[in-house]
Design a binder for these strands. Structure first.
Lengths: 285, 285
DNA sequence: ATACTTTTCGTAATATTACTACATTAAAAG
DNA sequence: CTTTTAATGTAGTAATATTACGAAAAGTAT
């Protein structure tokens, strides 16, 4: 449901426009930003047409009127600029690469927000709630994601551990069984070792949940997967956005588990929080 | 120059506003999209103030007037950021808590994007470039952030390690000296152990960089800090966004270092990437 | 408290801006 | 050439926004 960029729509419609509409279109396209700031009178003058012509032009593009048109144009500009400028160039300086990287992460998260399957999330929460034991597995960058997940889920008062050692993973997978949940994190879903471990766990009757790419070998091996398709463009040389997405999805899952546990569980979380107080300098305010 | 998101600006200014301005702000924040579509008269009525009050409100936020304000607001909305009621309620289901958590993370990132000091980022990149050795330190949730940083920075071909063991941290801090960079990650900046370690490192002539809260005890102890003021979550159900922010800032720093190294360095990164190929199932497309 | 100052806010007049109805012109069809 | 239809503009009207000014409220100092 990504609404089409208004500027593209106008450009596409250009050949079908009549004389005065074309004039208006050209003026708008030549400087869309200026158009958003000008009144119908000034725009009419610039285009050398009458004001009603401009108004008709706006209505032709499904706007209620000129002000509404300007609004839509402004929105197109705002979202467009962010989309185009996503890549970091070799000659970028701090002031440009910093927002670019953050924007790119934001965009990816927005994408995931709109695409993630709520049904699937619910199913995974189900499995996690029922688990007698949870293992988080990951290698490389996903290793620290797994570790973060452990740090989050141990609070639920059940045996949780994270592992980034393949041999350890293999051994644990082979000793697991019903009631054990193996939560396997992998950006590509194609790492042979990881897929192998998932296969072992699965064949022993454990539940295997994958946080990984859709339709990957790992995904095929899992009881249940949370598909994440992160566009690769920023991850040219090192994983970036995918880790973040994985972490946020784990946040979502943890929240899901907390909510299912109900309000009686909150004092327990509070207790964990308070246990850290003596390790800290008191807050002055 | 990156213009700050108008909605954040308004939210931040909320405490400094007077009675009628507050009314207007609340109405706008409760449904910013509706605000962009309404006239000054309807907005005034909704806020139960006069039209000039709305107008003054707009000018206060550096808009030429009401229409200009609407335009800026629309642009802010279009940047992919949704501002819903950010808190998760006990009776939320998947379809509501999932977007809430992701939106809240996005919102935090957008805030950091607009507030982070580029000068400071540059200074930190300077230090990292010059480092003979880098240690990433963190405890708890910051432990996995430190580990992720190690995974990222080892690619730059210099001795990097991450540690989440306080004793290890102390020992390393005491043996360090000029040329060593201790990169200390802490959300609160108030954990006694961490501050102590930073102090030891500092007193031995090492460079200590803090990724932590501004004006915290840890920040005071550092050679250089990257201040991150993530609104502390009082809500039980909301996960910490600070980890995510820390990770993204480390992405920014890694990018900064890569760019400084120049294009000659890219083959090296390529080599690391390729080294993983044999561990993966080939991609079918 | 009281008078004085400053800030806040609304009324009403005015200016700006956008829209509509209708007239005119241009183009197309017969 | 008409006649018809589409395209465009004019002028009036409606709507929307802004300004100037003054009243009320809040704050200060005496």
């Amino acid at each position: 449901m990504h609404s089409q960029n208004l500027i593209n729509v106008i450009t596409d419609a250009l050949p079908t426009l009549n004389k005065s509409e074309t004039k208006v279109a050209q003026v708008i396209l030549s400087d869309p930003d200026a158009a958003t700031r000008s009144s119908i009178a000034t725009l009419a003058k610039k285009s050398q047409v009458s004001e009603p012509s401009v108004n008709r032009f706006c209505k032709r593009f499904n706007a209620a009127g000129f002000p509404d048109f300007k609004l839509k144009l402004a929105k197109s500009l705002a979202s467009g600029i962010r989309f185009v400028n996503r890549n970091v160039n070799p000659d970028d300086d701090v002031t440009s690469y910093t927002p670019k990287i953050i924007d790119s992460t934001i965009n990816t998260l927005a994408l995931v927000r709109d695409k993630i399957s709520h049904v699937r999330v619910n199913q995974v929460v189900d499995k996690l709630i029922q688990a007698k034991r949870i293992y988080f597995f990951g290698l490389g960058a996903s290793g620290s994601v797994a570790r973060d997940a452990e740090n989050k889920f141990f609070r639920f008062n059940l045996p949780v551990s994270s592992h980034d050692d393949v041999l350890m993973q293999r051994m644990l997978a082979s000793t697991g069984g019903a009631g054990d949940v193996f939560f396997v994190i992998s950006h590509t879903g194609r790492t042979k070792e990881v897929v192998g471990v998932a296969e072992i766990a699965r064949s022993n009757g454990s539940t295997v949940i994958g946080l990984t790419a859709a339709n990957s070998p790992l995904a095929d091996m899992c009881t249940l997967t949370l598909d994440v398709d992160v566009p690769e463009n920023t991850d040219e040389y090192m994983p970036m956005a995918s880790r973040i997405v994985h972490l946020v999805i784990l946040d979502v899952l943890a929240t899901g588990v907390t909510l299912r546990r109900g309000p009686d569980f909150l004092p327990h979380l509070e207790k964990i929080k308070n246990s850290l107080k003596p390790t800290r300098f008191p807050n002055e305010d």
